[in-house]
Design a protein around this nucleic acid. Structure first.
Lengths: 110, 110
DNA sequence: TTTCTGTATAACGAAATCGTTATATAACGT
DNA sequence: ACGTTATATAACGATTTCGTTATACAGAAA
């Protein structure tokens, strides 16, 4: 098991401690996601989504792949926090992650 | 394994996402701690310590035991987040949790 | 009762957070 | 070139966070 300093770990937990970001990560649990899918899925503006993605990226939790004009994000399996993130996501219920999801959100299937 | 909603989990992660609170929890990992020991251990004021403890209590993570004028806090093993907290604490390095600990902090032993 | 120690709360300020709208940039299609 | 779509950044405001100092409360001891 990898060990972390209090500073490192608390920084990551702070990033995870937002319902929108946590729900975004949940959507990336199994597949990569296009940034635009988050815009459809959450009832916040596209710039707000973009900033959340930036925070997740800066925490080292995400990798991106550009395909034409779309940018696909996925979990960074090489992050020292990847095991932790996966375990947390495993404890997150599906359906309507934030109560803010639009009807097109692919996480809400029930 | 217990499951949590995104809302619940993100709320707890937010509480955990502060270096002082995470270090406080680390000190309670094995033993209960008197509130005053945190005051000695961190370079912030007593009221600041008190507010951090209140947040941890309100998140359901702590239980308290009054003994004369001292209040001893310990992890709430009945919290649905207790297993998660313990696992996180297991990934936290000891020594000088925040870089802010005073020389009397009992966590820094090396 | 007064005093001391331990803890909590009130009131305040600086900085961070998280949303918005407006605008810029990148890549595609016509 | 131009318009459209996808994404990022800038600028701003409301709210939250986290520290402080001052004060209140609780219990012990003189």
């Amino acid at each position: 098991m990898d060990m972390h300093t209090v500073e490192e770990l608390s920084k990551v937990l702070k990033v995870l401690g937002d319902p929108t970001r946590l729900a975004m990560l949940k959507q990336m649990e199994t597949d990569e996601q296009c940034a635009c899918s988050f815009v459809d899925c959450f009832d916040i503006s596209q710039p707000a989504i973009s900033r959340h993605l930036k925070m997740l990226r800066q925490a080292g939790l995400l990798l991106e792949r550009r395909d034409k004009q779309w940018i696909h994000y996925r979990l960074n399996e090489a992050s020292p926090f990847y095991p932790l993130v996966m375990e947390l996501l495993g404890q997150v219920e599906l359906h309507d992650p934030t109560g803010t999801s639009a009807s097109t959100c692919n996480v809400k299937s029930s």
